[in-house]
Design a protein around this nucleic acid. Structure first.
Length: 434
RNA sequence: GGGGAGAUAGCCAAGUGGCCAACGGCAACAGACUGUAAAUCUGUCCUCUUCGGAGUUCGAAGGUUCGAAUCCUUCUCUCCCCA
C-alpha cells in the first residue's frame, strides 16, 4: 500500500485527535513532531504467528504516522517475547520456546511489510528485532549497565506490577519493563528514534524507557499512546464466537474477515472508520452523514470492510468476499444458487467450511438429522441438530427446514454435487457429495 | 501459630435430607422484529436421545440413610480477622 506523505497533510497529533486515537501524550511531543520528520516506533508482541485485528490499531497508528511525513519503525519482540509482558495480564505467562518465537516473528514481519511503505525515502519504514541487541547482552552486563539506573521503587510503582503484587509476579516478568525500556534507549542512542507509541496499556513500559534515557544519558525522548478500543456494548474488540479475527487468511478467511467488519454496529463503525481507514476527515464526516440518512445501507460498515479487506488481503479477495456475502445474505432465492456455475460457486464459498460425504449415501435419501450430524459433523450431536431445526435455525440451499424427520436426496444437489447448509444466521457450510 | 468464613454448571449466585439436573442474573446460541445494526420479546443453555426418556454432576475421597448438593469423617484449596 503506498502512502503519499506531503507537507499539506495535517500534523500527526491533530490527525490522531480527530481519529480519536490519542490517549496519553508526553509534554513536548507535539512540538517535536512539528519540527520535522521524526522516527517513531511501536513494539509487537510475538505471542502468535499472525497479527490479529487488535494489533491492527497499532499498525494503523504507524501508517498514519508515515502518512503524516514521519518515519515508522515496527519492532518485533524477539527478546521481549522471551520474557512476557505482565501488562494487562492477571497471571504469569507461559514462555514460548525459541523456535516458536522465531516462527511467530517471521509471520508478523511478513504481515507488517504489507502495510507500511518500505521504499527508500525520508519516511521509509523499518522493521527491527530487539533480539539483535539483546542476543549478546549478558545478564551481568544488563543489571550492571542498565538495572543500576532504575530503582526497584520506580518499577514497583507501575500499574502492571501493582496489580500483580497480591497474586505474585516472577522476577522475569517484573524485569520486563526494563527490557522494553532498554529497547527504547538502544533505538534512541543508536538509530535516532525519539518517539515510542503503543496501546494505553503500554504507557508504564514506555515511560520506563524515557526515564532510562534520561538517567543514563540525560537525553530526552517522547511518547504517546492510543486508547484501548472497546465495543459500544463494552465487550472486547476483535473477537467473535469463532475466536480471534486474524490477519492471516489461513487462520481467518478473507470472507470471514470481511464479515467481521461488515457486522460491526453503527456505534462502533463510527470509531472504526476513523481508526482503520485512511479516509480523511471530510470523507469520514460525509460518509457518516450519508449513513445517518440511510442506515440500512450500512455504508460505514461497507466502506470499512472494503478498505481494510483490500489492505490486509487484496482487491481480489475483497471482491470474492463481497460476492459471497451478497449471495449468502442478499435476497437471492434458491434459484439464484442453482444458477451459479461450479467455478463461481466454489470460489464464492472458498471461505466457508467444507465437508465431504459419499454421494452414494445421498442417492437413496438420507435423514436430515443424520446428514447434518453423523455424516457431515456440522452438528456435534443428533439432538442438537434436531433442536436447531425445530427452532427454525437451519436451512439447506437457502430453504428453511422445519421437519427434523425430513429426508434429503441427491435431487437437491447444486451442480449435482453441492449442498449449502446454513446453521443459524451467519454460519454456512458446504457439503460436497463426491 | 490462633480464630472464623467459604468451595454449586462458562461466570455470579440460591439451595441446608426426598417436590433438585439444581431458583435467579450475566454471558452464549437460536427464533421473531430489523438493516447481516442496536434495543426489545420468545426459546435453548451438563451429556446423549428414537423427545418418551437415559446417563453423569454440586472442591476430593470415604461413610450414615430406602434416599444426600444438603448429615458425619478425612483431605485439598481460597478468603477474612488476630498474632
Amino acid at each position: 500500500m503506498s502512502s503519499t506523505p506531503s507537507s499539506s497533510t495535517p500534523g500527526f497529533i491533530e490527525e490522531l485527535k480527530w481519529r480519536r486515537m490519542l490517549q496519553d501524550i508526553m509534554p513536548g511531543t507535539e512540538e517535536l513532531l512539528r519540527k520535522g520528520p521524526v522516527k517513531g516506533y511501536i513494539g509487537f508482541d510475538p505471542t502468535s504467528d499472525s497479527l490479529g485485528v487488535g494489533n491492527l490499531v497499532q499498525v494503523m497508528t504507524l501508517l498514519h504516522f508515515q502518512r503524516c511525513g514521519h518515519q515508522p519503525v515496527a519492532l518485533v519482540g524477539g527478546a521481549t517475547g522471551m520474557v512476557g509482558d505482565p501488562s494487562g495480564k492477571s497471571a504469569e505467562r507461559n514462555l514460548l520456546d525459541e523456535e516458536a518465537l522465531a516462527f511467530n516473528l517471521a509471520g508478523q514481519k511478513r504481515q507488517l511489510e504489507k502495510f507500511l511503505d518500505f521504499s527508500a525515502g525520508p519516511t521509509q519504514a523499518m522493521i527491527v528485532n530487539n533480539y539483535d541487541w539483546f542476543r549478546n547482552f549478558s545478564f551481568l552486563g544488563f543489571i550492571r549497565d542498565v538495572g543500576k539506573h532504575i530503582t526497584i521503587n520506580y518499577m514497583m510503582s507501575k500499574d502492571s506490577v501493582q496489580r500483580r503484587l497480591e497474586t505474585g509476579i516472577s522476577f522475569t516478568e517484573f524485569s520486563y519493563q526494563l527490557v522494553q525500556g532498554y529497547d527504547f534507549y538502544y533505538l534512541w542512542k543508536n538509530q535516532g528514534l525519539q518517539l515510542q507509541m503503543g496501546g494505553s496499556d503500554q504507557w508504564g513500559n514506555i515511560t520506563t524507557g524515557t526515564e532510562l534515557i534520561r538517567r543514563m544519558e540525560g537525553g530526552e525522548a517522547f511518547a504517546l499512546t492510543t486508547p484501548l478500543i472497546k465495543k459500544a456494548d463494552g465487550t472486547k474488540f476483535g473477537k467473535t464466537e469463532g475466536g480471534n479475527i486474524w490477519l492471516d487468511p489461513k487462520k481467518t478467511s478473507p470472507y470471514k474477515f470481511y464479515q467481521f467488519w461488515l457486522n460491526s454496529s453503527d456505534e462502533d463503525s463510527k470509531n472504526y472508520v476513523r481508526i482503520f481507514t485512511t479516509l480523511n476527515r471530510e470523507e469520514v464526516e460525509a460518509l457518516e452523514a450519508e449513513h445517518a440518512k440511510a442506515p440500512h445501507l450500512r455504508l460505514l460498515q461497507k466502506s470499512i470492510a472494503r478498505e481494510v479487506c483490500i489492505r490486509v488481503h487484496s482487491e481480489e479477495d475483497y471482491r470474492s468476499a463481497l460476492e459471497a456475502s451478497e449471495i449468502l445474505f442478499g435476497n437471492a432465492p434458491t434459484e439464484a444458487l442453482s444458477k451459479l456455475d461450479e467455478e463461481t460457486l466454489l470460489s464464492v464459498f472458498e471461505g466457508v467450511p467444507q465437508v465431504n460425504i459419499a454421494r452414494s449415501e445421498l442417492e437413496e435419501g438420507l435423514g436430515i438429522v443424520d446428514l447434518l450430524s453423523d455424516k457431515s459433523g456440522i452438528f456435534p450431536s443428533r439432538g442438537e441438530a434436531r433442536k436447531l431445526i425445530q427452532s427454525g435455525g437451519v436451512s439447506i440451499n437457502k430453504q428453511k427446514l422445519s421437519d427434523p424427520n425430513a429426508r434429503q436426496d441427491a435431487g437437491g444437489l447444486l451442480q449435482d454435487k453441492y449442498l449449502l447448509v446454513q446453521k443459524g444466521k451467519k454460519n454456512y457450510y458446504l457439503i460436497i457429495a463426491g
